[in-house]
Design a protein around this nucleic acid. Structure first.
Length: 414
RNA sequence: GUGGCUGUAGCUCAGUUGGUUAGAGCACCGGUUUGUGGUACCGGGGGCCGGGGGUUCAAGUCCCCUCAGCCACCCCA
């Protein structure tokens, strides 16, 4: 019995789920295409080192969330927990540094061994974009604008807030990080257990602590803006100005941080309150240090990833089920002829179903359940005159139609 | 990984202080109606009560373990 349950944190996407899922993915693909981003796919697993190297040995993802295994050949493999590392690896594997900028869209499953809850699964799906080779703030603005278009396309933009922050360049962040460590080290006895841990791994995260005691300390902590150098300040000013020019609203959130060292400058998240604790629906930032850290040529990058399941939960719009044409043969000659007509209709592009068993009442009933728009009822007597009854299942109107005019007659149901 | 809540039919849920063959609505199948649907009426199938162990004359109900889901923390999309 328990072996019939899907593995914890995984879910089947039945047709209705799948339709919404695809709607999200196709919207992303279409919008990205408008911005000049082409779709790529990288393998869903990579050598473990690809993720270890890029995500850092101390990150949660690497220390406890990866699905790692060794192959028969002895390779150390990991199911991708995110896709930026994979795209970066592909960038280098294929020698793409010669044709910058590189603009990619991707979508597919990701795997993280976390405790499942609402909006969080162990296998989930992301759609994302990466822009490599643009060091200017215009790149950040373009990437965020792409996200806005995407969310608008899905009709969920108004349910989200864009939170924005800067992490500064390497120099600024190091200076701030040192200042934070120095400050919080004076209060080791007052910090929560989680934050003591963060002090080692990722001091910036302490700023975001929900612990009350921590928050009191945070209130008095050094402010990031005091540590930003002129270059970083100017960069952030330009990003904000670019967003203003496009009429994109945002809220500055100084506590919005990123754990990983290669992140710099812009960090942003589109969040919603409609999904419970897992409110981040699309998030990204700039990662100028990544490619170099992986052993490639220093190449700036910006990008984001979005959660397809989260977006599809947020999307209230109905995703309509397909409406087939149903052929109902009544009689021996009709039974023989129906598949041929169905075949023609299918070549003509109609979704076509055949209703074989039961009396007419049952077959019409089934056609309703199939959400059919029209039924073609073919009796032997009608067939003898090369015609059939075409019944509109919404209005109930019906008429006799010559078979060779069928395709034309049905064109209103396309 | 930690804590709290929950698990009865395909779905949403009843089920008394433990007491005969575990119920309803929706859905499904059949009939009223052998070529005209959505409505109505009548009938039917479907459950190891998440799984395992224990207490008891007797467990869906009480206890323990386990699995899964939900919620929060951690972290993230």
């Amino acid at each position: 019995m328990s072996s019939l349950q899907p593995v914890r944190g995984t879910h089947d996407l039945l047709p209705e789920d799948m339709r919404r899922h695809r709607e999200v993915l196709e919207a992303g693909r279409a919008v990205a295409n408008r911005f000049g981003y082409d779709e790529i796919a990288t393998p869903i697993f990579e050598k473990t080192e690809v993720f270890k190297r890029t995500l850092g040995d101390t990150s949660d993802v690497v220390t406890k969330e990866m699905y790692t295994f060794s192959t028969k050949g002895g390779d150390d493999i990991t199911l991708r927990p995110e896709n930026t590392a994979g795209v970066a690896r592909a960038f280098m594997s294929n020698g793409l540094s010669q044709q910058l900028p590189v603009k990619y869209f991707y979508g597919g499953p990701m795997f993280r061994h976390e405790r499942p809850q609402k909006g969080r699964q162990r296998q989930f799906h992301q759609a994302g974009v990466e822009l490599l080779g643009v060091e200017k703030p215009q790149g950040d603005v373009e990437i965020i604008a792409l996200g806005v278009h995407f969310l608008k396309e899905l009709g969920v933009y108004d349910d989200t807030v864009l939170e924005l922050n800067t992490l500064g360049d390497v120099e600024s962040r190091k200076a701030y990080r040192d200042a934070l460590v120095e400050y919080f080290s004076n209060f080791k006895d007052q910090l929560s257990e989680d934050s003591l841990d963060r002090l080692e791994k990722n001091p910036l995260r302490i700023l975001d602590s929900k612990n009350e005691g921590d928050r009191k300390l945070v209130a008095e902590a050094p402010i990031f803006s005091d540590y930003l150098n002129d270059f970083s300040k100017d960069f952030f000013v330009q990003v904000k100005a670019g967003l203003d020019d496009l009429g994109i609203a945002y809220e500055i959130n100084p506590r919005l941080v990123r754990g990983l060292d290669y992140y710099c400058h812009t960090a942003f998240e589109f969040t919603t309150t409609a999904l419970g604790a897992q409110g981040t629906v699309l998030a990204g930032g700039r990662y100028d240090g990544l490619i170099k850290m992986m052993g490639g040529p220093a190449t700036p990058g910006v990008g984001w990833a979005s959660g397809i399941e989260r977006l599809s939960m947020l999307m209230t719009r109905e995703v309509s089920a397909p409406k087939p044409v149903v052929i109902i043969p009544m009689g021996e000659a009709a039974d023989k002829r129906a598949p041929i007509i169905a075949d023609e209709l299918r070549y003509a592009g109609y979704r076509t179903e055949l209703g074989y068993s039961g009396n007419l009442k049952k077959r019409l009933n089934r056609a309703n359940k199939q959400n059919a728009c029209v039924a073609i009822i073919m009796g032997d007597d009608e067939l003898a005159e090369n015609s059939a009854t075409v019944r509109d299942l919404v209005s109930g109107d019906q008429s006799i139609v010559k078979l060779d005019e069928l395709t034309k007659k049905l064109s209103i149901y396309r």
